[in-house]
Structure formats: structure tokens, C-alpha cells
Design a protein around this nucleic acid. Sequence first.
DNA 1: TGTATTTTTTTTGTCGACAAGAAATTCGAA
DNA 2: TTCGAATTTCTTGTCGACAAAAAAAATACA
Lengths: 234, 234
Amino acid sequence: MTDIDPSQMAERRRGSGVKLVYDLLRDEILDLKLAPGSAIDEVQLASRFGMSRTPIREALVRLASDGLIETLPNRSTMVSNIDFLNMPAYFDALVLMYRVTTRLAAQHHKTEDLETIRQLQVAFSAAVESQDALAMIATNAAFHSAIAAAGRNSYYGAFFERLLNDGRRMLRLYYQSYEDRLPARFVEEHEEIIAAITARDVAAADRLGKVHGEQIVEQIGRLLTRHEDIDIDL
Amino acid sequence: MTDIDPSQMAERRRGSGVKLVYDLLRDEILDLKLAPGSAIDEVQLASRFGMSRTPIREALVRLASDGLIETLPNRSTMVSNIDFLNMPAYFDALVLMYRVTTRLAAQHHKTEDLETIRQLQVAFSAAVESQDALAMIATNAAFHSAIAAAGRNSYYGAFFERLLNDGRRMLRLYYQSYEDRLPARFVEEHEEIIAAITARDVAAADRLGKVHGEQIVEQIGRLLTRHEDIDIDL
DNA sequence: TGTATTTTTTTTGTCGACAAGAAATTCGAA
DNA sequence: TTCGAATTTCTTGTCGACAAAAAAAATACA
């Protein structure tokens, strides 16, 4: 890890330190630039960011309560491992949140929400076009985040956000399993979802959210030995 | 706020400071001993707990990422207000989580889970018997937490836990709306839930979880002007 | 008396230092 | 040499102090 640009660390607004460190480390962890299980050294980070250990530690505390790092008392801090054993549970929750957020968006969206959603769909489509797996992951998450926001339920929103973040790390590991035809299918499904939300068709939104979620689970989950029965008619 | 017992602050194991402060402040906030909106003074807390500001601050960072306190940059920290406008969304999420966790418990529980659940039901029943509203809230939450744990989905578990915590503050404000007959009904419903889980009757567990959740929503939510249509057949 | 500007006070964010714990290393005895 | 105890090294948790930022108070001026 190289030091940051000295011109950046020169003068910072007081109080911006922890956020800077938090945001950057968070991205590095989610993008797997920091490998799961790798150690985190406070003093090294302090010198890297040109600040004392105090703000670094506060950023680490936040990351820890996000579950992105793990702290052994009096001993090392490390990047959390991806819990593959819990992947069935993860997918179960993810599919349900796809359904619920899409459904609520159909109920509660405002017209300005649709513009945001459509813009993000364009970005996702472009990422698929250019076969940029990382951009696909990011724009897909942004697309569904926007749908969740349109659903106007901050509790689901926060939970879904967290699931999508956890997913970023797993998807980065498995994105090689994407073949060309499947992302194209995702684009189509996104379009259908947008149509259902626009039409305020709650039933269709629910169904499409479920199908879309299961699509992803099937794509990722075939690498697992077994996964939950997600065909519950909840 | 009075200082803590000096014998407690005498010698503490290194590293236990933040957890001590975090746990205590968390309970005080959730039990409304610290009123929503009230200011939090770092130096006062430091002298109260007999430690420096550094561990206090780390505890506050954790509370902030739990959403229990809010920090204005460079300025005051205060206990988060209860967001009554979002109560419909809250109840929507709560009911769904009641359903999902109960359903999953019916699917995945092990026999030792049932013992824990039954013990907590006994405690809840005792709290209802003695008309102790605070104990009712706590033991009810513990009961459903145990059910969620038996469902073996840590994602739902963490989310549900958070919802129950938020609920603790609202319930404390509204517990006067409980009349004698309703807690008794809750006890009965709990028994039915236990029976459904034991029998691994997923459909019944789902239905009972939904009914139970809506029961609570109706009890609390009648104080609201309007609330979500929770009768969705998801 | 009311308002704008300066000064004081209060509180936060950050720092460097130090001590406690745990791991790594060295040392000693069989 | 090998195992176990003592020692050193290294990292973390905590402290007291200081500086920046904002609010509160005081002052000046119309």
C-alpha cells in the first residue's frame, strides 16, 4: 500500500478524517483490494493517511460495526472473511428483499423516482454492453438501491443496502461465472421491473422481483453444494 | 446522572472500557432513561465512568452507527429522536420479520432451541402475570429473538434484532395503551407459535407470525392517523 | 434600545506518549 | 537438540494536552 498524495494530506478540514478513512477502507474491502482475512495495521494506516491513530481507530470501529472487519481484543484486526456457509441464508434474505423493495416501489414511487431508476438502468445496460463486470455489479446494486428508495421504507432500505454490500464481495469472487447471455437477460428483467413499477402493478412487481432474485441466486448458487428452498410461496 | 460505584471503576480489564460504556448507554437510551433529543456530553461521561474521552468516543461512534445517537460535525451529540413518521414503515418491516423468522424456525430449529424458547415464554408469561410492562417488553423481545436464532439465518436475525431494539423505545412510550386482556392474548399466541414450530408446521408458523405481528401493530398503531395496508398477501 | 462585531467560553477533533497484553525471541536445562 | 521459562518486541488501549470550530457573551456603534 502506497502513501496517498501528499497534496491531499496537506490540509484537511477538521473532522473529515474519519469519514475519509472509513469510505476509502470500506471501498477497498468491498472491492476485494483488501483480501478477506488480511491484517489491518493501525500505525501503517496512520502514516499512510498522514494522521494520528485516533481518527483511524474511530473509522475502524465503524467498519467493525458494519461487520467488514473483525477485532480480536488486544490483538490483531483483520478484514472479515466471507461467510460461504451462510450463503443460502444470504440468498434467502436477498431474494425476499428484491421482492419487497420492488413491490413497495410499485406502491409508493413518485414520478421523479422513475427518472433516477431509468438513468441507473441505462448505466447498467452500458456496463453489460462493455462487458465490465465490476461496473455491472456496482450499477446493478445502484439500480436496486434506487428502487428500494422509491419504496419509502428506510428499514428495508438499510437492510437491503447492507445485503447488497455483502454481495459485492461475493460477486467479485464469482463474477467469472457470468456468461454473455445472462447479463443481457438481467437487462431485460430490469426493463420489465421498471414497467411494472411505472404501472403500479404490485403483483407483477412482486413476481418480477422474485424471479430476478432467483435468477441471480441460481447463477451464483450453482457453485454451492446445496441451497435453501427459495420457492416458498410466502 | 450520578457517578458509578467507585468500586466498579477502580480496576477494569484493559479493553473493557468501550463495551462497558456502550452497553450501559445503549440500555439507558433504549429504556428512555436518556430522553430522545437530549444532549450527550463527552467530558461528563468521561468523569462519570472514570476514564478518558477516547474510549467514550469509540463507544459513541458505535452508538451512532446503531442509529441511537446523532452527531452534528464539530457540534453537539444527542440521543436520536424516535421517528414517528416512519412508524408505518417500521410496522410493515416488523410484521414481515415476525412471519419470516417464525417460518424459518419451524423449518430449521433443533430440539435444544425449543427449550430456550419455552423458557423465555415462561419469563414472558410471568411478566404479564405481574403486570410489569418493562419486563413484558424485554421478555417478549427475547422470546422472538430466540425464535429468530432458531431460524438459522443471521441476516434476518441481525435485522430483526435491530427492529426489536427500535421498538423498545416506542413501546416504552406507548405501553400505557396495553389493557389487561391483550397481554394475555399475546401469551396464548406465543403458545400457538411454539406449537407450530415444534410441529414443524411452516404454514401455521407463517400465519401465526403474521397474526401476532398485526396484533401488536393494531395495538400500537391505532394511535397513528393512518398506517400501511399490512394485509398484503405477500 | 437594537444590531453588528469582537471577545470569551465551551466543546470537539486530533495528537504524541505511555503502559498493558500478547506474540516472538532468546536463553537455559535436560 | 528439544522443550519450557524468561525476556524482548510489537501492537493495542488509554491518557492528558492542545488546537480548531462553534456558540455564547461582551462590547461598540448607530
